[in-house]
């Protein structure tokens, strides 16, 4: 129960942070990290896949409503949620994988967490920026934005993970 409340609070916090602050920090029209993906990344590993898909869709749609982007974030987030279980199987070693029902995202090693994050965030951002532009003429702009913002989001996600850690230790 305690965990559930924590997930809800974290979700609300990240969505508000995204629409209130990060959607407005747009240096040179290039830097636009999407920190809300952290909420989807840290949903429990044992969560049923269908629930994961629906929650990711709702998360993306919430961001869409506030950014006038139709269903772009919903599409990108749903894709992220769809490949997440497959990518967990690859990045997190078999020994831990057996206890996957109980394991929490914070029990995963740092290196594994980075690999886990980079691909999922990259796929999410690529879908988002490409879907927004919908044309090949902006190819380099899209590639550039994807790489820069993936790095930026990953850095922020790692920072958030440490924040999660320290708050759980003191609690």
């Amino acid at each position: 129960m305690n965990d559930l409340i924590k997930h809800i609070v974290r979700w609300l916090f990240l969505v508000l942070l995204q629409i209130g602050i990060f959607n407005n920090i747009e240096l040179a029209g290039l830097f636009n990290p999407f920190v809300y993906v952290f909420a989807i990344l840290v949903f429990p590993l044992g969560m049923p896949r269908s629930l994961l898909l629906i929650l990711a869709f709702i998360t993306g749609l919430t961001i869409d409503i506030f950014s006038n982007t139709g269903g772009l974030h919903a599409a990108a987030s749903t894709l992220l949620a769809f490949i997440r279980p497959w990518w967990v199987g690859i990045t997190i070693p078999r020994t831990n994988y057996d206890e996957l029902q109980n394991i929490r995202i914070k029990d995963i090693e740092f290196g594994q967490f980075i690999t886990y994050t980079v691909l999922l965030v990259g796929v999410h951002h690529l879908t988002l920026f490409w879907g927004e532009s919908m044309s090949w003429s902006d190819f380099w702009l899209i590639t550039g934005k994807t790489i820069i913002n993936t790095l930026l989001t990953v850095v922020l996600v790692v920072a958030f993970r440490y924040f999660d850690f320290s708050s759980s230790k003191t609690a």
């Binding site: 869709f57 139709g70 599409a75």
Partner: peptide, 28 residues
């Protein structure tokens, strides 16, 4: 199938948004 359904909804919403006169519910 669930994945395809959700993606379809998302894409329809995206296309609707860019139609010029669409006074849809899902915008700010």
């Amino acid at each position: 199938f669930l994945f395809v359904l959700l993606e379809t909804v998302a894409i329809v919403l995206t296309i609707q948004q860019s139609a010029y006169h669409q006074a849809s519910f899902f915008n700010s």
